[in-house]
Design a protein around this nucleic acid. Structure first.
Lengths: 145, 145
DNA sequence: TGGTAATAGTTGGTTTTGTAACTAACAAGC
DNA sequence: GCTTGTTAGTTACAAAACCAACTATTACCA
């Protein structure tokens, strides 16, 4: 067994993805942390409510692939900060509908705008073709279509 | 300010990257966890030593962009499991050279082979062109060339 | 109906991470 | 040679993640 048939893990896809994901999320994480005191999971919940409107915690978990305990705690903090309201459903009193407050919506819109600029910077050196392939392959890898 | 100019965050690159990275690493993480009881950081250290041969903790940190405390703890556990040895350098007694033991090398080679197969499955539905673009864009995003 | 199973969400205890302060060894300037 | 600053690695404490057990409510079905 020689060293020759050893696969070069430097290009190992899960590794490249992890490194690129971390690098890409870092700069933006600073923004939502410093401007709004949000943690990553809290930002994600905010962003799902901003996109989809009212949702339940379980619904967000399914879309974002986040565990319900993480969401439960994120929602708690978002409610404390008055970015989100919760309302028990009369038709099924186990569920709570989550909604952005006006303050939550303002934060969402602001961060949305920042995100847009941030992404442009990230992709500055890439061609349109590369960007298309990148997005489409990532979506497939993430099982998002 | 209408809703119309709101950027669609479903395609937000840091989000897609995070989701794809998590999905891609999950299956492989189970392997190194179940077969060798390794944590993610421990696997990364093992893999750097497998690729580059002997290194210091700081050297691994620089390559892998891992904080030195994380590496310190990972190395401790790898030494306990007899996958890694450490040796203080006489020329600079602050540094320790880390090396794989034979058992560490065996684990590395085994996981390397699994990784290779695993990656093939991940990329099964992609064309060669897509794979090239994916790898090259990820490397640039991760500042790895 | 009444009993069992399933679902929504929370809480508690353990692991793991993150951050800062720490020790030990070396380097550089005076 | 001292003093000051830097670097390698560890440790300690706080924050966050993980997992399992829990409450409350609804669904299934005999």
């Amino acid at each position: 067994m020689t060293q020759i048939d050893i696969f070069d893990l430097r290009g190992f896809l899960p590794y490249l993805l992890a490194q690129a994901a971390e690098e890409a999320s870092l700069g933006f994480a600073q923004v939502y942390k410093e401007k709004y005191g949000l943690l990553r999971t809290e930002w994600r919940v905010l962003f799902h409510l901003g996109i989809y409107g009212e949702m339940t915690a379980t619904g967000i978990g399914a879309k974002a692939k986040l565990h319900k305990t993480k969401i439960s705690r994120a929602v708690q903090r978002l409610v404390e900060r008055r970015f989100v309201t919760r309302e028990r459903l009369d038709s099924d009193r186990r569920q709570e509908i989550l909604r952005l407050t006006p303050a939550g919506m303002r934060a969402y819109r602001d961060l949305n705008a920042v995100a847009q600029q941030y992404e442009q910077k990230l992709l500055a050196g890439f061609s349109d073709g590369e960007i298309d392939v990148l997005r489409s392959t990532l979506k497939r890898l993430a099982n998002l279509g």
